[in-house]
Nucleic acid binder design. Structure first.
Length: 533
RNA sequence: GCGCCUGUAGCUCAGCUGGAUAGAGCGUCGGACUUCGAAUCCGCAGGUCGUAGGUUCGAAUCCUACCAGGCGUACCA
């Protein structure tokens, strides 16, 4: 709100200065560097120097003159610094009042204007075994993004796409078949192509003695999905919908999408197979097979149908969270979506790089097929949900991540997640103490007595939270939030060390705001916020 | 070969659509608890932002080439 007013003021002043030469909001308002004492700075005079031929400094001088003439009441001081930045110091009451408004309404995040219905699809691991740490990164990113978008006012559904058709599932069913027969005492070996993890034996044990035909495929998918769903629940994640690949065929969604593509002229029969001609149009590196010569659809074909179906269900925007090893797939699915008549930008594919699980710096080899891996459930047991989630969300998804179990455990006492949680627990402790001493929080005192530099910095930080959440949504990356929370916690700890809080009713309001925001931010990451630790 | 991602302090990483003296955490070293929780705080040290050019008032950020690592380039899923 404060920033918006400032934008208006700057735009209006610019119009006067250059006599109507529109600058088209092509300037920024930002925080000045630490050595400069000001609330905001703008680079408008640099941008303006391009339009009207004059030096930035000269323009800045005139700019300030104009503002001073009009006696704008929100401004305490205004000055030039560096090669032509205009710096603003605003009346501190503006910040204090704004913070109190948000505190009283418990609305620390300004909602976005559009309320798009969004479908976010993530994890979608093939149901061939338990989840591991790599899936967990996608899970944490997707779930957190869903929470963020919801907070901003969107209607968000979370979906898991289940690949319950295809080769892998046949191999899986065969593995279960053999394991079952082995349990019955038969002396047969697993085929080379098998899933060797011990969870397959456990599933076989659960079948028990049955007469007649056993549908191993049906059993194995159901059991493994149970396993996956259970692991995700432990990880604090649930889905609105589990979408079965096979339902596309059953519900004729598949035929619908393929027909539509054929009609669009982008699907052509060449050498007995149907190809998506995206390569010829420059939308992809090459054309891709959708229906094989033998008439069987490729994975790509069902995926096209799946995306067509998502839009058909009424979602305005689709978000997919994919491992970066699938990046080569992005162009073709986007091409397909556009040939189906949708905007490419309505499908947003967020990629995250893969996670290496380490122990004492040694890489742990992972292979679902060979049954050698540490499952997500084991990681959670060892490290804890909060630390695991925070760790996975601490950095930008673009870079690969080393997750060292020993490090995560060894660090547990000064792990960033506990640092943030502790700040909030500490606040509750102060509030308890104040309550015992009969000191009550007071809005009035907050308005009147808050004046220290550290307090004003904290208040600005509180107001900034809304921007951070919006940024995280825009860039589809929660790491901005975890970074912000660490900084907020640090500022609070520093403030605590310097000032006595519990005896001042105004300060109690300030720390309650901080506690609110820490709880809100941690919730967006899917991390708990205990009152005591 | 072509395409995508990554390269910033000893280590792990931030750095928003180009901005003013590039920042945290961990680690090293040195300080602070008879006080609202020391799971904390304060301080010192640590950098040719992979390399070389280019664009401009201004580049870690944009462009080009190169170097290094990862991933992808199936009628697999």
């Amino acid at each position: 709100m404060i920033k918006e007013k400032l934008v208006e003021l700057i735009s209006a002043t610019w119009l006067k200065l250059c006599d109507g030469e529109v600058i088209d909001n092509n300037f920024v308002i930002e925080e000045p560097p630490k050595n400069i004492q000001a609330d905001f700075a703008t680079n408008i005079c640099f941008q303006g120097a391009r339009l009207i031929k004059n030096s930035p400094i000269k323009i800045a001088e005139k700019f300030i003159e104009l503002i001073n003439e009009n006696k704008v009441d929100m401004i305490e001081d205004i000055f030039i610094a560096g090669p032509g930045f205009v710096n603003f110091i605003l009346k501190k009451e503006l910040f204090i009042e704004e913070a109190l408004t948000r505190f009283n309404s418990k609305n620390y995040v300004i909602k976005t204007k559009n309320s798009d219905k969004i479908l976010i699809e993530f994890v979608s691991a093939n149901p061939t075994g338990p989840l591991h740490i790599g899936h967990a990164r996608g899970a944490a990113i997707g779930d957190s993004l869903a929470r963020i978008l919801t907070r901003l006012g969107h209607a968000v559904d979370k979906e898991y796409y289940v690949n319950n058709a295809g080769n892998q599932i046949d191999v899986l069913a065969k593995t279960l078949d053999v394991r079952y027969q082995q349990l019955q005492g038969k002396d047969i070996e697993l085929p080379d192509e098998s899933y060797r993890g011990k969870y397959m034996i456990e599933i076989a044990e659960q079948i028990g003695i049955q007469s007649g035909e056993i549908d191993f495929k049906k059993i194995v998918i159901a059991k493994i999905l149970d396993l996956i769903e259970g692991d995700l629940k432990k990880f604090n994640i649930d889905f609105h919908n589990w979408f079965l690949e096979t339902s596309l065929i059953e519900d004729e969604q598949f035929d619908f999408a393929i027909e539509r593509l054929k009609r669009s002229g982008h699907l052509k029969l060449v050498d007995g197979a149907w190809w998506l001609m995206a390569g010829d149009l420059g939308d992809d590196d090459k054309n891709r097979v959708v229906i094989r010569q033998d008439g069987r659809p490729t994975y790509f074909a069902t995926d096209i149908a799946y995306h067509a179906n998502k839009f058909k269900r009424g979602y305005d925007k689709l978000i997919n969270i994919w491992g970066a090893d699938h990046h080569g797939y992005v162009a073709r699915i986007k091409a397909a979506v556009s040939y189906l008549g949708h905007e490419q930008d309505d499908l947003n594919i967020v990629l995250y790089n893969l996670v290496s699980l380490l122990r004492n710096g040694q890489k742990i080899p992972m292979s679902t097929r060979a049954g050698e891996f540490i499952s997500l459930a084991e990681v959670i047991n060892e490290v804890g949900v909060d630390a695991t989630r925070f760790f996975l969300l601490m950095r930008d998804g673009n870079s690969s991540l080393d997750f060292d179990l020993e490090l995560a455990k060894a660090q547990s006492s000064d792990n960033p997640v506990y640092y943030v949680q502790y700040a909030r627990a500490r606040i509750f402790s102060i509030l308890r103490k104040a309550s015992e001493d009969g000191v009550k929080p007071s809005n009035d005192d907050f308005l009147k007595t808050i004046k220290e530099k550290e307090e004003l910095n904290l208040i600005k930080m509180i107001l900034k939270y809304s921007d951070i959440v919006a940024l995280a949504a825009k860039e589809c990356s929660s790491h901005h939030i975890s970074m912000y929370l660490q900084e907020l916690a640090a500022k609070f700890h520093n403030y605590y060390a310097k000032y006595k809080i519990s005896e001042q009713p105004g300060r109690l309001i300030l720390i309650m705001m901080i506690a609110d925001i820490i709880a809100d931010g941690l919730d967006l990451l899917g991390v708990s916020a205990p009152d005591r630790m």
